[in-house]
């Protein structure tokens, strides 16, 4: 089979909701260069835009996966189909990754209306992986009602999830010392809903008060809800049903107030710029004429100050 036929087979499989093809398509996206996967992405683009995308983020070990597991159950109780992308970090040294989020969600593995995929960050620093955005499109085209994206454990600046999720849930847990202080800079402001998990532990109430104060100051519309959960309790006693209700309320609110359309247009805008940079680099690197502008000899000349770095850039830009 040639490339086009294989791509068509993937697309057909996805539209027929066949898990094997959905899974293969995500690997294809993860492993291929932009110009190889573009024809595929082009074919699925018309089928995207229907799913609700929920981002689950927070510090390492806060309980993101445990909460995701129970959220899947809550949405399944409403008869919604659910897909999960769970991202864990790749080692910058070995490039390998140990992907453990799935352990907490194994009870859903045999449910045909649930799909769970672990992804390694593969060097991306924003809390997602390069391929996450396109993987979401595959799941969206496959018709999942809800797509949950669990980010890597975040610290201060990993906020790429705001560029993909309709609703961002930020999870805190007591026992991380000055974590809020450290987070204030960037991460804290991204939340549409705050969750204090591990409410069974000491200092949860104190944390709840602190976060409530932050949420009260928020300029967001609607004001972020602040919830307490104990994700390790039984479903009924975990507080996750309430979290699901808050998420649904939030999604309804932004749908009806046209904020969702604004958000999605912002996603498209930021993705346009990202994708365009990739496409440009592809184009530049595949043009032999342009490539000669920065061969080894040129670089040596720049190093020896025989050539001005910025003159070289100007010349390349002119040649494009």
């Amino acid at each position: 089979m040639n490339q086009n036929q294989e791509i068509q087979k993937l697309v057909d499989g996805i539209l027929n909701k066949q898990i094997r093809y959905i899974a293969k398509a995500i690997s294809f996206i993860e492993n291929s260069e932009y110009k190889i996967k573009k024809p595929f992405l082009k074919l699925i683009f018309p089928y995207t835009g229907k799913a609700s995308i929920i981002g689950i983020t927070g510090s390492p070990g806060a309980g993101k996966s445990t909460i995701t597991d129970k959220l899947i159950k809550a949405f399944r109780n409403d008869n919604k189909s659910v897909a999960v992308l769970a991202i864990d970090p790749s080692s910058p040294f070995t490039k390998g990754a140990l992907l453990g989020d799935r352990i907490r969600m194994q009870s859903h593995t045999t449910d045909p209306f649930v799909y769970i995929r672990s992804m390694a960050s593969r060097g991306a620093l924003g809390g997602l992986s390069q391929a996450t955005k396109d993987a979401i499109k595959v799941l969206d085209a496959a018709g999942f009602d809800i797509i949950i994206v669990e980010t890597v454990g975040v610290g201060q600046s990993e906020i790429d999830v705001v560029k993909v999720a309709d609703c961002v849930v930020l999870i805190f847990a007591p026992g991380f010392g000055d974590e809020i202080q450290a987070m204030k800079a960037g991460v804290v402001e991204i939340a549409d809903i705050y969750v204090i998990n591990k409410a069974d532990l000491d200092f949860a109430q104190k944390l709840f008060k602190e976060i409530s104060d932050i949420a009260n100051l928020s300029q967001k519309q609607p004001k972020p809800a602040v919830l307490k959960t104990i994700a390790t309790n039984t479903f009924q006693e975990s507080g996750i049903d309430l979290l699901k209700k808050e998420i649904s309320n939030y999604l309804n609110f932004i749908k009806n107030s046209s904020n969702l359309a604004k958000k999605r247009q912002y996603f498209i805008e930021s993705e346009l710029i990202d994708t365009l940079s990739k496409a440009m680099i592809d184009k530049i690197l595949s043009n032999q004429n342009i490539k000669s502008f920065f061969d080894k000899a040129t670089i040596k000349k720049i190093y020896n100050k025989e050539l001005n770095f910025y003159t070289v850039i100007d010349k390349i830009m002119e040649a494009i």
Binding site: G96, A97, L99
Partner: peptide, 13 residues
């Protein structure tokens, strides 16, 4: 050990 050898490993418990 497999992760340290550069593979992406999923452990399911």
């Amino acid at each position: 050990a497999l992760q340290e050898n550069g593979y992406e490993v999923i452990y399911t418990g």
